[in-house]
Simulated scan of single mutants.
Amino acid sequence: MTSTERRQGLRDVSAVLGQRVRKRREALGLSQEELAHRSGLSRNQVQNLEKNRNNSRDANGRTGPANPRLDTLWSIATTLEITVSELLDGIDRP
């Protein structure tokens, strides 16, 4: 696997993760602000995860894909009343 393929794979996985977080958040009737407050994160962190971006930029000025830490995933999953395993289940498969 080339580095380009790995980067694209990370973008794809991150996009699915963000979609899952948003779908679950909305199902619980939470705003991004409420999810952030309850999980101890900033609204910007939640927004970046859902929109699959982070604040780092490459040499061309493009933002990178979301890449949350495990403790961030745990906080979000707990607040969304699911496990990290449920949040990530099958995410690496097309």
Score class of each variant (00 low, 15 high):
residue 82 I to Y: 04
residue 38 R to D: 11
residue 32 Q to T: 12
residue 77 A to T: 04
residue 6 R to S: 07
residue 34 E to R: 14
residue 31 S to K: 01
residue 79 T to G: 11
residue 13 V to H: 04
residue 10 L to P: 02
residue 25 R to Y: 00
residue 49 L to S: 06
residue 82 I to H: 07
residue 18 G to I: 02
residue 10 L to N: 13
residue 71 D to M: 07
residue 29 G to R: 05
residue 18 G to F: 01
residue 12 D to E: 14
residue 65 P to A: 14
residue 2 T to I: 08
residue 8 Q to H: 09
residue 33 E to Q: 13
residue 2 T to H: 07
residue 54 N to C: 11
residue 20 R to L: 05
residue 24 R to Q: 12
residue 66 A to T: 13
residue 50 E to H: 07
residue 90 G to Q: 04
residue 28 L to I: 02
residue 82 I to V: 15
residue 48 N to H: 15
residue 90 G to P: 03
residue 52 N to M: 05
residue 61 G to H: 11
residue 71 D to T: 12
residue 77 A to I: 05
residue 12 D to F: 05
residue 5 E to D: 12
residue 87 L to E: 05
residue 49 L to D: 00
residue 86 E to Y: 06
residue 79 T to M: 04
residue 62 R to V: 11
residue 36 A to H: 01
residue 14 S to L: 03
residue 92 D to M: 10
residue 74 W to F: 12
residue 73 L to E: 07
residue 73 L to T: 08
residue 79 T to F: 07
residue 59 A to W: 06
residue 33 E to Y: 13
residue 18 G to K: 03
residue 93 R to N: 14
residue 70 L to N: 07
residue 14 S to V: 03
residue 65 P to K: 10
residue 81 E to R: 11
residue 67 N to I: 00
residue 36 A to N: 09
residue 73 L to Y: 09
residue 44 N to Q: 15
residue 55 N to R: 13
residue 11 R to H: 13
residue 87 L to H: 02
residue 76 I to N: 06
residue 85 S to Q: 08
residue 15 A to T: 11
residue 87 L to N: 07
residue 84 V to T: 14
residue 45 Q to F: 01
residue 3 S to H: 09
residue 63 T to V: 09
residue 89 D to F: 10
residue 38 R to Y: 10
residue 56 S to F: 13
residue 19 Q to I: 02
residue 21 V to H: 00
residue 8 Q to V: 06
residue 45 Q to R: 09
residue 10 L to Q: 12
residue 74 W to G: 00
residue 47 Q to L: 05
residue 61 G to D: 10
residue 21 V to Y: 02
residue 80 L to G: 13
residue 37 H to K: 14
residue 27 A to M: 09
residue 7 R to F: 09
residue 71 D to Q: 12
residue 59 A to T: 12
residue 61 G to P: 11
residue 86 E to N: 11
residue 7 R to H: 14
residue 42 S to W: 03
residue 45 Q to D: 09
